[in-house]
Design a protein around this nucleic acid. Structure first.
Length: 289
DNA sequence: TGTTACAACAAGCTCCAGCC
DNA sequence: GGCTGGAGCTTGTTGTAACA
């Protein structure tokens, strides 16, 4: 899928951007940019698409994304309802290698940062003690200016580079291509997110993308490294797992709530994805509580 | 209520041609 | 050369029915 190219405007006197966002929901479509990005979700929940990766996010979710890695944070449906008082807040830092200074990365002392930047092409989740430290520094950074802000960025990068609590988000780098493709894919994502609980077809998605079915299938697989049906299934099974844990609905009810029309198919897919059937999944989770 | 086997069909893949 | 669409074949998904 191809995200839109997006830049945050720089502030005068700064070589990189720090923003505290506060929206009713995150408005940014599927997009990419040449800057590195550190993003901390401080309020709101939803699903995040990063490269070919799909998962839930919530407050505290912290990621470091390399340049041109396509991504999209989409809030839960309740954020889009009229009259919703929910807020979507985050702290976002955008910077380039040039923000660190000409030839900075050529220094022998910067070897770890060079390695970190290479790893960030797959996107990095930041956890453990590093997570707490980086969160604190990001909150602090918002109130800093000038060289202190710059030193804070370097400190954060060093903290991440030396951490053992950092994991790759995607298996291999995936970069954005052009704005037309990005918008096309973004439109399809939005449509899937709004409709995956119902019967949806590749042909409908192809129509939204204004493509022939074959071309769309190839395009979707190429850009997301997932088949269209595989992508929809992943969304449905993630919802099913959540319903099994959070509700007392029967497995059959969960099955229909998630867009499946057939309990046998649902069981089979669930077993394949989670390596256990829905009942066992629920029992395992409840026992662990 | 959940699981499994099987047949039908939709989706995916590959090759090729046409267009820009 | 790259992108798109058509055709045909393969593969995967789904629904039905039977059974535990």
């Amino acid at each position: 899928m191809k995200p839109a190219l997006e830049h945050l405007p720089k502030e005068p006197g700064h070589s990189f951007v720090v923003r505290n966002f506060d929206y009713s929901y995150y408005p940014t479509p599927w997009h990419y940019h040449p800057e590195y990005e550190i993003v901390l979700v401080t309020e709101s929940t939803g699903k995040r698409f990063i490269g070919d990766h799909l998962s839930d996010f919530g407050p505290g979710n912290l990621a470091f994304l390399g340049p041109n890695l396509p991504h999209h944070y989409r809030n839960d449906d309740r954020y889009y309802e009229a009259g919703s008082v929910l807020r979507a807040k985050s702290i976002v830092v955008h910077f380039t290698e040039a923000s660190l200074g000409k030839d900075f990365l050529e220094l022998p002392e910067a070897a770890r940062l060079r390695k970190l930047f290479e790893r960030s092409l797959c996107g990095l989740d930041i956890n453990g003690k590093t997570h707490r430290k980086v969160c604190d520094r990001l909150h602090e950074m918002s109130g800093l200016a000038g060289l202190k802000r710059w030193l804070c960025l370097v400190d954060i990068l060093l903290e991440i580079a030396e951490s053992g609590s950092v994991t790759a988000i995607t298996k291999s780098p995936l970069v954005g291509y052009n704005e037309k493709e990005s918008r096309r894919l973004g439109d399809v994502f939005d449509w899937i997110m709004a409709n995956f609980e119902h019967d949806i077809r590749l042909s409908e998605a192809a129509a939204i993308a204004e493509m022939n079915e074959n071309a769309f299938s190839r395009f979707f697989s190429l850009r997301t490294r997932k088949t269209f049906s595989g992508f929809v299934q992943e969304l449905r099974l993630q919802k099913a797992a959540r319903l099994l844990i959070e509700n007392e609905l029967s497995v059959t009810e969960v099955c229909y709530e998630c867009g499946y029309n057939n309990i046998s198919n649902f069981n089979r897919q669930f077993l394949h994805h989670y390596h256990m059937n829905p009942m066992k999944y629920r029992r395992t989770f409840l026992k662990g509580k």
